[in-house]
Design a protein around this nucleic acid. Structure first.
Lengths: 248, 248
DNA sequence: GGTGCTCGCTTGTTTGTACAAGTTCCCTTA
DNA sequence: TAAGGGAACTTGTACAAACAAGCGAGCACC
């Protein structure tokens, strides 16, 4: 069952992306939209709130909503899963497990995943047949047996975990910064040691709040960028000073 | 006039941050909260939606809301203004204008700011007396006269533009990636050439959608990290392949 | 003992109404 | 001509009511 406001949001989004409303143009008023879709104003409000959250439109009390952009932003899954992102964007992609072993957690990992042993997995991901991403992931003990059963060239771990164990990634926290390539990074990504890498450290939990994984992903410079749209009303991206947040 | 749902959100946020609800705990139901605050369920819903957007709580249909974290996230202004961010976080900070000149816009800038000349400003920002950030900002022609009047050691450009011209930054788009330091970057930030920098390219507009500036900010590695919390319901951060999005 | 089902609780969606607050534009007035 | 004052319009907030959909616990049954 798809909600009505989602359908309305989809239709409006489609029109915006198709260019029916050029950038800076005004959207019809809520009343007009309500009449057009035969829905209550509250429902239309929810629909445009979706578009505002996506950064497509802006709103101010008293004035009509304006169109801010015409590029679509991706889904949650595409931020957590390299494979789902690459597929949705029409890229050729692959992956290979390099190394996998159980070990005791670091203090930082224990704080996030719990006290048990972690499963440490090192994977290389390719985009257009070029290695672009190095994933160093620590899986919580409860999910480790499932991960160990995956084939080394598993294309989408997220998908595989859902298929075989019903695990859904629902919440995540991400820290993004830049680091120089270590010797191992350099060898596996085919860059010089010390060259810039875009690092994304993340912790992922299920919808019950149970921690699943804790990962350190490093992208080759120039291969990938993160994008965010925000407005004065709400913004989720935050700066942190130094390394004080994630521990060693 | 502060909205009721904001007050309720503030109170609940305060309790969460104070540790009244430990991580993973359940929040009271909407009905209970409605009774407690003497408000309608819809109003309470708006309040908890605020907390959910901040990543503090998660919700699933059928189950009570759970507490996901207990750290506050910052405001929009703190993402756009280095000074406001640094001040809010209790850092010692400063800034110095290195260079400022008018020039014709690049094609990418013309597409974002309009066809007029741009004011190109190069600034160095310091944190705890160390240079950590290099800002290369192109201001749109309509705001250039105001920017030119600012003192070279202006601490907060955002604040100054608001005070002297009433300009409010309301919407922004940001692209984050990693680049090697150029010769100029290296000299001004005191790092080796080619060492990793965290780059944030952004376009900012007023609440009417009028573009104000277009900037290329480079942070020294290790000095600053960006953080984001997201959930399966909504996430604003997106990956982009290569440099295809911002132009040269 | 374990499996499956039902029932109550909780969140999600939708409609309707009313008023508050801010914007835009026109029209009056000095 | 320029400043000021509305009036109409539009978004924001709040309340009330009803039903849909998902979750979890407890119960009955095998």
């Amino acid at each position: 069952m798809v909600a009505r406001y989602e359908l309305i949001a989809d239709e409006l989004r489609g029109e915006i992306l198709a260019g029916a409303y050029p950038m800076g143009a005004q959207l019809p008023s809520e009343s007009e939209l309500a009449a057009r879709f035969g829905a209550a104003r509250g429902t239309v409000r929810q629909a445009v709130a979706v578009l505002a959250a996506e950064g497509l439109v802006g709103s101010r009390q008293g004035a009509r909503r304006i169109v801010l952009g015409n590029a679509r932003s991706q889904s949650f899954a595409e931020l957590h899963s390299f494979a789902q992102w690459a597929r949705a964007n029409g890229h050729r992609y692959g992956g290979l497990m390099i190394n996998q072993r159980r070990r005791p957690p670091t203090p930082a990992e224990a704080a996030r995943l719990g006290p048990g042993e972690v499963l440490d997995v090192l994977r290389v991901r390719t985009l257009e047949d070029e290695p672009v991403l190095l994933e160093r992931t620590a899986y919580a003990e409860w999910i480790a047996p499932v991960v160990e059963e995956l084939p080394p060239d598993c294309e989408s771990v997220t998908q595989a975990l859902y298929d075989s164990a019903g695990v859904v990634f629902a919440y995540g926290e991400h820290l993004i910064d830049a680091v120089p390539a270590s010797a191992q990074d350099a060898r596996l990504l085919g860059v010089r040691r010390g060259s810039p890498l875009l690092r994304q450290r993340r912790v992922t939990t299920t919808h019950e709040g149970r921690p699943v994984e804790c990962s350190d992903d490093r992208y080759r410079a120039g291969s990938v960028a993160f994008s965010i749209r925000n407005s004065i009303g709400a913004n989720p991206l935050v700066r942190h000073a130094g390394d004080l947040h994630f521990g060693a």
